[in-house]
Protein backbone atom coordinates (compact mmCIF):
# COMPACT_ATOMS: atom_id res chain seq x y z
CA UNK A 1 0.00 0.00 0.00
CA UNK A 2 1.43 3.36 -1.03
CA UNK A 3 1.96 6.03 1.60
CA UNK A 4 1.30 8.80 -0.88
CA UNK A 5 -1.68 10.93 0.05
CA UNK A 6 -4.14 11.69 -2.71
CA UNK A 7 -6.95 14.11 -1.96
CA UNK A 8 -10.04 13.90 -4.14
CA UNK A 9 -12.26 16.97 -3.88
CA UNK A 10 -15.81 15.89 -4.69
CA UNK A 11 -17.61 12.65 -3.89
CA UNK A 12 -19.73 12.36 -7.00
CA UNK A 13 -19.32 9.62 -9.56
CA UNK A 14 -16.07 11.17 -10.87
CA UNK A 15 -14.48 11.29 -7.44
CA UNK A 16 -15.78 7.86 -6.48
CA UNK A 17 -14.66 6.22 -9.72
CA UNK A 18 -11.17 7.70 -9.41
CA UNK A 19 -11.00 6.63 -5.75
CA UNK A 20 -12.10 3.12 -6.64
CA UNK A 21 -9.41 2.82 -9.29
CA UNK A 22 -6.72 4.30 -7.01
CA UNK A 23 -7.62 1.83 -4.27
CA UNK A 24 -7.05 -0.99 -6.74
CA UNK A 25 -3.71 0.59 -7.64
CA UNK A 26 -2.64 0.40 -4.00
CA UNK A 27 -3.42 3.90 -2.70
CA UNK A 28 -5.75 5.03 0.05
CA UNK A 29 -7.31 8.19 -1.37
CA UNK A 30 -9.05 10.78 0.77
CA UNK A 31 -12.44 11.93 -0.51
CA UNK A 32 -13.68 15.34 0.65
CA UNK A 33 -17.38 15.79 -0.05
CA UNK A 34 -19.36 18.93 0.76
CA UNK A 35 -22.75 17.23 1.12
CA UNK A 36 -23.68 14.54 3.61
CA UNK A 37 -23.65 11.71 1.10
CA UNK A 38 -21.67 10.32 -1.80
CA UNK A 39 -22.95 10.08 -5.35
CA UNK A 40 -23.46 13.74 -6.32
CA UNK A 41 -26.19 14.47 -8.83
CA UNK A 42 -26.47 10.84 -9.93
CA UNK A 43 -27.52 9.85 -6.40
CA UNK A 44 -30.63 11.98 -6.93
CA UNK A 45 -31.43 10.47 -10.30
CA UNK A 46 -33.90 7.65 -10.88
CA UNK A 47 -32.83 5.88 -14.06
CA UNK A 48 -30.01 6.51 -16.50
CA UNK A 49 -30.36 6.67 -20.29
CA UNK A 50 -30.34 4.91 -22.62
CA UNK A 51 -30.67 1.52 -20.88
CA UNK A 52 -32.90 2.79 -18.06
CA UNK A 53 -30.44 1.39 -15.53
CA UNK A 54 -31.29 2.41 -11.96
CA UNK A 55 -28.95 5.24 -10.93
CA UNK A 56 -28.77 3.83 -7.42
CA UNK A 57 -27.07 0.69 -8.74
CA UNK A 58 -24.03 2.55 -9.96
CA UNK A 59 -23.87 4.76 -6.86
CA UNK A 60 -24.14 1.78 -4.51
CA UNK A 61 -21.55 -0.21 -6.44
CA UNK A 62 -19.12 2.70 -6.32
CA UNK A 63 -19.86 3.30 -2.62
CA UNK A 64 -18.94 -0.30 -1.87
CA UNK A 65 -15.78 -0.03 -3.97
CA UNK A 66 -14.57 3.09 -2.11
CA UNK A 67 -15.50 1.96 1.39
CA UNK A 68 -11.80 1.50 2.18
CA UNK A 69 -11.00 5.11 1.29
CA UNK A 70 -10.85 7.89 3.86
CA UNK A 71 -14.06 9.83 3.39
CA UNK A 72 -14.93 13.19 4.86
CA UNK A 73 -18.62 14.02 4.35
CA UNK A 74 -20.17 17.46 5.00
CA UNK A 75 -16.66 18.85 4.70
CA UNK A 76 -15.31 21.73 2.66
CA UNK A 77 -11.81 22.53 1.50
CA UNK A 78 -10.90 25.96 2.86
CA UNK A 79 -7.68 26.45 0.91
CA UNK A 80 -4.80 24.59 -0.66
CA UNK A 81 -1.22 25.75 -0.48
CA UNK A 82 1.64 24.36 -2.51
CA UNK A 83 4.64 23.22 -0.46
CA UNK A 84 7.54 22.01 -2.65
CA UNK A 85 6.16 18.92 -4.46
CA UNK A 86 3.16 18.55 -2.21
CA UNK A 87 -0.09 20.34 -1.45
CA UNK A 88 -1.34 21.31 2.00
CA UNK A 89 -5.10 20.85 1.92
CA UNK A 90 -6.91 22.57 4.79
CA UNK A 91 -10.41 21.35 5.61
CA UNK A 92 -13.11 23.21 7.50
CA UNK A 93 -13.14 20.49 10.20
CA UNK A 94 -9.62 21.53 11.23
CA UNK A 95 -7.87 18.63 9.49
CA UNK A 96 -4.83 19.50 7.41
CA UNK A 97 -3.56 16.99 4.82
CA UNK A 98 -0.23 16.98 3.07
CA UNK A 99 -1.04 15.46 -0.31
CA UNK A 100 1.25 14.32 -3.07
CA UNK A 101 -1.58 14.69 -5.59
CA UNK A 102 -4.96 16.43 -5.68
CA UNK A 103 -7.84 15.54 -7.95
CA UNK A 104 -10.55 18.13 -8.44
CA UNK A 105 -13.87 16.42 -9.21
CA UNK A 106 -16.34 19.02 -8.05
CA UNK A 107 -18.77 18.52 -10.90
CA UNK A 108 -21.42 21.01 -11.94
CA UNK A 109 -24.39 22.91 -10.61
CA UNK A 110 -27.81 22.76 -12.15
CA UNK A 111 -28.81 26.05 -13.80
CA UNK A 112 -31.15 28.05 -11.58
CA UNK A 113 -34.38 27.89 -13.59
CA UNK A 114 -35.88 30.91 -11.80
CA UNK A 115 -33.53 33.02 -13.92
CA UNK A 116 -35.62 32.19 -16.98
CA UNK A 117 -38.47 34.25 -15.60
CA UNK A 118 -40.71 33.73 -18.61
CA UNK A 119 -41.01 30.02 -17.78
CA UNK A 120 -42.41 30.76 -14.32
CA UNK A 121 -40.40 28.32 -12.19
CA UNK A 122 -40.95 29.28 -8.57
CA UNK A 123 -44.02 31.29 -9.63
CA UNK A 124 -46.41 28.74 -11.11
CA UNK A 125 -47.06 25.62 -9.09
CA UNK A 126 -47.07 23.16 -11.98
CA UNK A 127 -43.70 24.16 -13.41
CA UNK A 128 -40.95 21.74 -12.34
CA UNK A 129 -37.33 21.17 -13.21
CA UNK A 130 -35.77 17.95 -14.48
CA UNK A 131 -34.33 17.45 -10.97
CA UNK A 132 -37.76 17.87 -9.32
CA UNK A 133 -39.27 15.28 -11.65
CA UNK A 134 -36.40 12.88 -11.13
CA UNK A 135 -36.84 13.15 -7.35
CA UNK A 136 -40.51 12.41 -7.77
CA UNK A 137 -39.67 9.34 -9.87
CA UNK A 138 -37.38 8.22 -7.04
CA UNK A 139 -39.44 9.14 -3.97
CA UNK A 140 -42.96 9.27 -5.36
CA UNK A 141 -43.54 12.31 -3.21
CA UNK A 142 -44.09 15.80 -4.55
CA UNK A 143 -47.10 17.94 -3.53
CA UNK A 144 -47.37 19.18 -7.11
CA UNK A 145 -47.85 15.64 -8.37
CA UNK A 146 -49.26 13.69 -5.45
CA UNK A 147 -52.70 12.44 -6.33
CA UNK A 148 -52.75 14.26 -9.67
CA UNK A 149 -53.53 12.56 -12.94
CA UNK A 150 -51.20 14.00 -15.59
CA UNK A 151 -53.07 14.17 -18.87
CA UNK A 152 -50.88 16.66 -20.70
CA UNK A 153 -47.24 17.49 -20.00
CA UNK A 154 -44.47 19.39 -21.69
CA UNK A 155 -40.68 19.44 -21.56
CA UNK A 156 -38.68 22.55 -22.40
CA UNK A 157 -35.18 21.75 -23.64
CA UNK A 158 -32.13 24.00 -23.28
CA UNK A 159 -33.20 25.92 -20.16
CA UNK A 160 -30.12 27.96 -19.37
CA UNK A 161 -28.07 26.17 -22.04
CA UNK A 162 -26.99 27.69 -25.36
CA UNK A 163 -28.44 30.89 -24.02
CA UNK A 164 -26.41 34.06 -24.36
CA UNK A 165 -28.83 36.08 -22.23
CA UNK A 166 -28.55 33.55 -19.41
CA UNK A 167 -24.77 33.78 -19.65
CA UNK A 168 -24.35 30.15 -20.69
CA UNK A 169 -23.51 29.51 -24.30
CA UNK A 170 -22.51 25.87 -23.81
CA UNK A 171 -24.69 22.90 -24.70
CA UNK A 172 -25.34 20.79 -21.61
CA UNK A 173 -25.22 17.62 -23.72
CA UNK A 174 -27.48 15.48 -21.58
CA UNK A 175 -30.72 17.51 -21.55
CA UNK A 176 -32.08 16.32 -24.91
CA UNK A 177 -31.76 12.66 -24.06
CA UNK A 178 -32.79 13.24 -20.43
CA UNK A 179 -35.99 14.93 -21.62
CA UNK A 180 -36.71 11.91 -23.80
CA UNK A 181 -35.97 9.56 -20.91
CA UNK A 182 -38.17 11.51 -18.50
CA UNK A 183 -40.94 11.81 -21.08
CA UNK A 184 -40.90 8.03 -21.50
CA UNK A 185 -40.90 7.48 -17.72
CA UNK A 186 -43.78 9.91 -17.33
CA UNK A 187 -45.66 8.19 -20.14
CA UNK A 188 -45.15 4.84 -18.42
CA UNK A 189 -46.71 6.26 -15.26
CA UNK A 190 -49.54 7.98 -17.13
CA UNK A 191 -50.12 5.93 -20.31
CA UNK A 192 -52.95 8.18 -21.53
CA UNK A 193 -50.94 11.38 -21.17
CA UNK A 194 -50.07 13.51 -24.18
CA UNK A 195 -46.50 14.76 -23.98
CA UNK A 196 -44.73 17.49 -25.91
CA UNK A 197 -41.00 18.22 -26.07
CA UNK A 198 -40.08 21.76 -27.16
CA UNK A 199 -36.55 21.77 -28.54
CA UNK A 200 -34.15 24.02 -30.46
CA UNK A 201 -32.51 21.08 -32.18
CA UNK A 202 -31.94 17.63 -30.85
CA UNK A 203 -28.36 16.70 -30.00
CA UNK A 204 -28.43 12.92 -29.63
CA UNK A 205 -24.85 11.93 -30.21
CA UNK A 206 -24.40 9.04 -27.76
CA UNK A 207 -24.70 5.32 -28.24
CA UNK A 208 -28.35 4.31 -28.72
CA UNK A 209 -29.61 7.87 -28.14
CA UNK A 210 -31.09 8.13 -31.61
CA UNK A 211 -32.89 4.78 -31.13
CA UNK A 212 -34.19 6.13 -27.86
CA UNK A 213 -35.59 9.18 -29.66
CA UNK A 214 -37.26 7.09 -32.35
CA UNK A 215 -38.78 4.80 -29.73
CA UNK A 216 -40.14 7.80 -27.87
CA UNK A 217 -42.09 8.74 -30.98
CA UNK A 218 -43.03 5.29 -32.26
CA UNK A 219 -43.73 3.43 -29.05
CA UNK A 220 -44.79 6.24 -26.72
CA UNK A 221 -46.32 8.80 -29.10
CA UNK A 222 -44.36 11.72 -27.69
CA UNK A 223 -44.63 14.90 -29.77
CA UNK A 224 -41.50 16.82 -30.66
CA UNK A 225 -41.99 20.50 -31.48
CA UNK A 226 -39.01 22.37 -32.90
CA UNK A 227 -39.34 25.81 -31.41
CA UNK A 228 -38.71 27.88 -28.35
CA UNK A 229 -41.25 28.43 -25.62
CA UNK A 230 -41.92 32.16 -25.43
CA UNK A 231 -43.94 32.41 -22.26
CA UNK A 232 -45.76 30.41 -19.63
CA UNK A 233 -48.76 31.54 -17.64
CA UNK A 234 -51.21 30.00 -15.21
CA UNK A 235 -54.88 29.39 -15.89
CA UNK A 236 -57.76 29.66 -13.47
CA UNK A 237 -57.61 25.91 -12.74
CA UNK A 238 -53.89 26.03 -11.92
CA UNK A 239 -52.79 24.39 -15.14
CA UNK A 240 -50.05 26.09 -17.12
CA UNK A 241 -50.56 27.65 -20.53
CA UNK A 242 -47.53 27.42 -22.77
CA UNK A 243 -46.94 29.51 -25.87
CA UNK A 244 -44.27 28.42 -28.32
CA UNK A 245 -43.38 28.57 -31.95
CA UNK A 246 -43.44 25.49 -34.17
CA UNK A 247 -40.71 26.41 -36.61
CA UNK A 248 -41.36 23.39 -38.82
CA UNK A 249 -44.99 24.24 -39.48
CA UNK A 250 -44.30 27.97 -39.19
CA UNK A 251 -47.12 28.48 -36.72
CA UNK A 252 -47.48 29.55 -33.12
CA UNK A 253 -48.47 26.83 -30.66
CA UNK A 254 -50.49 27.25 -27.49
CA UNK A 255 -51.12 24.30 -25.20
CA UNK A 256 -52.58 23.94 -21.72
CA UNK A 257 -50.66 21.45 -19.60
CA UNK A 258 -50.93 19.78 -16.22
CA UNK A 259 -47.19 19.82 -15.88
CA UNK A 260 -44.27 21.65 -17.47
CA UNK A 261 -40.76 20.33 -16.91
CA UNK A 262 -37.78 22.62 -17.50
CA UNK A 263 -34.59 20.88 -18.57
CA UNK A 264 -32.16 22.92 -16.52
CA UNK A 265 -28.68 22.73 -17.94
CA UNK A 266 -25.27 22.37 -16.37
CA UNK A 267 -23.28 25.34 -15.12
CA UNK A 268 -19.93 25.37 -13.41
CA UNK A 269 -19.71 24.62 -9.71
CA UNK A 270 -18.10 27.91 -8.82
CA UNK A 271 -17.32 27.03 -5.20
CA UNK A 272 -13.98 25.54 -6.26
CA UNK A 273 -12.99 28.50 -8.45
CA UNK A 274 -11.15 30.61 -5.82
CA UNK A 275 -9.06 27.61 -4.74
CA UNK A 276 -8.43 26.46 -8.31
CA UNK A 277 -7.39 29.90 -9.52
CA UNK A 278 -5.12 30.35 -6.50
CA UNK A 279 -3.30 27.21 -7.67
CA UNK A 280 -2.91 28.57 -11.17
CA UNK A 281 -5.81 26.80 -12.87
CA UNK A 282 -7.59 29.25 -15.15
CA UNK A 283 -11.29 29.41 -15.83
CA UNK A 284 -12.39 28.74 -19.37
CA UNK A 285 -14.74 31.04 -21.29
CA UNK A 286 -17.69 28.87 -20.22
CA UNK A 287 -16.85 29.31 -16.53
CA UNK A 288 -15.64 25.73 -16.07
CA UNK A 289 -12.05 24.92 -15.09
CA UNK A 290 -9.60 24.93 -17.97
CA UNK A 291 -7.76 21.68 -18.75
CA UNK A 292 -4.24 21.70 -20.12
CA UNK A 293 -5.92 21.11 -23.47
CA UNK A 294 -9.33 19.89 -24.55
CA UNK A 295 -8.21 16.98 -26.72
CA UNK A 296 -5.49 14.83 -25.20
CA UNK A 297 -4.96 16.31 -21.71
CA UNK A 298 -8.46 16.91 -20.40
CA UNK A 299 -7.66 15.47 -16.95
CA UNK A 300 -4.44 17.43 -16.65
CA UNK A 301 -4.45 20.89 -15.11
CA UNK A 302 -1.00 21.68 -16.43
CA UNK A 303 0.16 21.98 -12.81
CA UNK A 304 2.29 19.28 -11.22
CA UNK A 305 0.28 16.96 -9.01
CA UNK A 306 -3.02 18.66 -9.77
CA UNK A 307 -5.61 16.74 -11.80
CA UNK A 308 -9.16 17.30 -13.03
CA UNK A 309 -12.00 14.89 -13.75
CA UNK A 310 -15.65 15.03 -14.72
CA UNK A 311 -17.95 18.00 -15.12
CA UNK A 312 -15.68 20.49 -13.35
CA UNK A 313 -14.10 21.08 -16.77
CA UNK A 314 -17.31 21.16 -18.80
CA UNK A 315 -20.60 19.45 -19.42
CA UNK A 316 -20.27 15.66 -19.41
CA UNK A 317 -22.38 12.56 -19.64
CA UNK A 318 -22.09 9.82 -17.04
CA UNK A 319 -19.98 7.52 -19.30
CA UNK A 320 -17.67 10.43 -20.18
CA UNK A 321 -17.28 11.28 -16.51
CA UNK A 322 -16.44 7.70 -15.57
CA UNK A 323 -13.94 7.40 -18.43
CA UNK A 324 -12.26 10.65 -17.38
CA UNK A 325 -12.11 9.59 -13.74
CA UNK A 326 -10.42 6.33 -14.68
CA UNK A 327 -8.00 8.22 -16.87
CA UNK A 328 -7.24 10.69 -14.06
CA UNK A 329 -6.57 7.84 -11.63
CA UNK A 330 -4.10 6.30 -14.06
CA UNK A 331 -2.40 9.66 -14.65
CA UNK A 332 -2.06 10.18 -10.89
CA UNK A 333 -0.53 6.72 -10.52
CA UNK A 334 1.94 7.39 -13.34
CA UNK A 335 2.76 10.78 -11.84
CA UNK A 336 3.47 9.26 -8.43
CA UNK A 337 5.42 6.23 -9.71
CA UNK A 338 7.35 7.63 -12.65
CA UNK A 339 8.62 10.69 -10.83
CA UNK A 340 7.24 14.10 -10.21
Amino acid sequence: MSKDNIVIIGGGIAGMTAASRLLRLGYTPIIVEESDHLGGHVAEWHKLFPDMAPAQDIVQRLAEEVSAANIFLSTRVLFINRLHDTYIVMLNNGVSIQAQAVLIATGFNLFDATKKEEYGYGIYDQVLTNRDLERWFTTGDDPRLNGHEVKRAGFVHCVGSRDVKAGNTQCSKVCCVTAIKQAIELKEKFPDAEIWCFYMDLRLFGKKYEDFYINAQKDYGIHFIRGRVSEVSEGLDGRVIVKAEDTLSGKPVKVTLDLLVLMSGMVCNATINPIATSLGIDLDSDGFLRSKDNISHIVSSGRKGLFLAGACTGTKTVPETIAEANSAALDIHLYLTEGK
Binding site: T114, E117, G122, I123, Y124, D125, E234
Partner: peptide, 10 residues
Protein backbone atom coordinates in the same frame (compact mmCIF):
# COMPACT_ATOMS: atom_id res chain seq x y z
CA UNK B 1 -49.37 30.85 -7.92
CA UNK B 2 -46.43 31.30 -5.58
CA UNK B 3 -46.52 34.94 -4.47
CA UNK B 4 -43.10 34.71 -2.77
CA UNK B 5 -41.61 33.80 -6.16
CA UNK B 6 -42.80 37.09 -7.57
CA UNK B 7 -41.49 38.96 -4.55
CA UNK B 8 -38.06 37.41 -5.13
CA UNK B 9 -38.06 38.64 -8.72
CA UNK B 10 -39.29 42.09 -7.67
Amino acid sequence: MIYQGKQKIW
